[in-house]
């Protein structure tokens, strides 16, 4: 359900950008969503459509770029791709992994008129 809040946050950032950059229509929104981020993409798409109704981003296309999860092992310093937080290091078996990429979610850019 918190995808509703995330969709609203996205619209707020778009509206801020509209004031600063003087555009009146958003055609495409590119997001970067980490594989480990606590967000369900289909839910986010649904709520994005809901919250952008009657807004500057009405009918804008939502493009989501997946960012793979990456971590470094605190024990043996191996760098690896991970899909979940509970994966073990493939080299030494340790669970002491430090996430280095893929736990964030950002608005990357907009196509506007």
């Amino acid at each position: 359900m918190h995808e509703l809040s995330l969709a609203e946050s996205i619209l707020q950032l778009i509206e801020d950008a509209a004031v600063e950059q003087q555009f009146t229509q958003v055609k495409t929104v590119w997001l970067e969503i980490g594989q480990l981020a606590c967000v369900e993409q289909e839910s986010l798409r649904f709520f994005f459509t809901v919250v952008t109704e009657d807004s500057i981003a009405r009918q804008a296309k939502l493009e989501i770029i997946d960012i793979a999860g990456q971590a470094m092992c605190d024990q043996c310093h191996q760098v690896m791709m991970i899909a979940t937080y509970h994966q073990a290091c493939p080299q030494c078996g340790s669970y002491a992994l430090h996430v280095t990429q893929g736990d964030g979610m950002r608005i990357k850019e907009l196509e506007v008129e």
Partner: peptide
């Protein structure tokens, strides 16, 4: 990026 009137706007901000 599509139509000729369109332009790209960099945002690069965390959704939160």
């Amino acid at each position: 990026p599509g139509m000729s009137q369109s332009r790209m706007v960099k945002i690069e901000r965390d959704i939160l």
